[in-house]
Design a protein around this nucleic acid. Structure first.
Lengths: 224, 224
DNA sequence: ACCTGAACACCGTTCAAGT
DNA sequence: ACCTGAACACCGTTCAAGT
């Protein structure tokens, strides 16, 4: 009819919009997490039967992937330092900070692929800056992945720690269950068990990224 | 009756053993992954009703945690180099290699806490060696976490890549969907898009860990 | 083309009852 | 103490039919 310039308007006009389905899925992800998302729940909230969704998406996995699209553009792109080493660190810290505020994204990412073009500038910045620091393109790509793994792991376990802290029913296995018998096998952990929780709570991603990036850049043929 | 020295044998004797429940759960995890594990499936395989399991474990989450117990002892503890820096790297590489062969463990770990005392020697070795390299205990614990995050992230995304490669139906978003239009915004990624998959497939965790560990140890007050 | 309705083959967990 | 049976409130997805 009106025509959106992409599709011919033949047959029955859609009663539910694909974008509306994705928006509802994302809202549930944001508010209640990935475990609360179901095809039936989404269908109910958009006012359709569960099977109506399958006309717009292949399956639940594809729908989850679609929720990532456009998320990067909801956050302003930060000013970055000119120095390439600092630029890598700042970009990685930004990645961590942004995902920290939309933690459901990591659950969707772990199920599949990145589907938001708007997030790729961060990979581009890190790879580009690493090459300008003297890494080969090969090394730069590997460095980018290492940085991403660290950011991702830090987010996963920060949330795991937070969940444990929120649920007093389940005490942490370590260091709680460390007995005197273990002091012989695990001398350092036994000695540090008192401080363990306090120290891990003080984990500083930015400081760690600085150290890691310096280590990765030290592999450059012509450093600095 | 015979008495195991831990519990008084009062009331009805158990018909299903807790250890048998955990063993069946672990077998399903190993063979079919965490998504295939259900209370009903386990109950069927041990020859009981679903609700019988709840007499031995609090819920599904606790049962999953129990599957981790004893896993570390199935792998021989490796000989480690004496040099503390090399010792950290070797321990981390060992962690990655071991978990690579029991990849279901990372799915269980991400849901909760470590519950296998036999795995703690690796944390002890890394923290101890880091302190012997001149880090403060505080820094050493942070370094351990950074190393663990890297190992974990590498495992998560190596499997994600493998799954994508196994499923030709879903093409990877990047670099496939990178068009000529993106070359302006993402110059490095556009230039490297041809090599991207080949290079990421060649990701070498050991080499990355060496660089990362060197970066972390460079924070020591009295290096080396 | 788009959507419904019924059905299939599942879930985790509570509750009351049996031995 | 240990286990069963029935029930509650859910899942993702296929298939045939309606408009």
């Amino acid at each position: 009819m009106t025509g959106n310039g992409q599709k011919r308007a033949v047959g029955r006009p859609p009663r539910i919009e694909k974008q509306r389905i994705v928006d509802v899925a994302r809202r549930i992800l944001e508010e209640e997490g990935v475990e609360a998302v179901s095809m039936r729940r989404i269908a109910k909230e958009v006012g359709a039967t569960p099977m109506a969704l399958y006309h717009h998406v292949r399956d639940k996995d594809e729908l989850l992937m679609l929720t990532l699209a456009g998320m990067a553009s909801t956050v302003p792109r930060p000013e970055l330092p000119d120095d390439p080493r600092d630029r890598i660190v700042a970009t990685a810290v930004h990645m961590h900070a942004v995902l920290s505020d939309m933690i459901w994204v990591i659950d969707v990412l772990s199920r599949g692929d990145l589907t938001d073009k708007g997030a790729l500038w961060m990979a581009d910045e890190i790879v580009d800056s690493a090459i300008r620091c003297g890494l080969t393109p090969h090394q730069a790509i590997h460095a980018y992945r290492t940085i991403w793994y660290l950011v991702y792991g830090a987010l996963v376990f920060r949330r795991a720690d937070a969940r444990r802290a929120a649920d007093p029913g389940r005490k942490p296995f370590f260091p709680s269950l460390l007995t005197q018998d273990d002091a012989g096998d695990l001398p350092r952990l036994a000695a540090l068990s008192e401080q363990w929780e306090e120290v891990t709570a003080a984990y500083d991603v930015a400081a760690q990224l600085e150290a890691v990036v310096d280590g990765l850049l030290a592999r450059a043929v012509s450093p600095g």
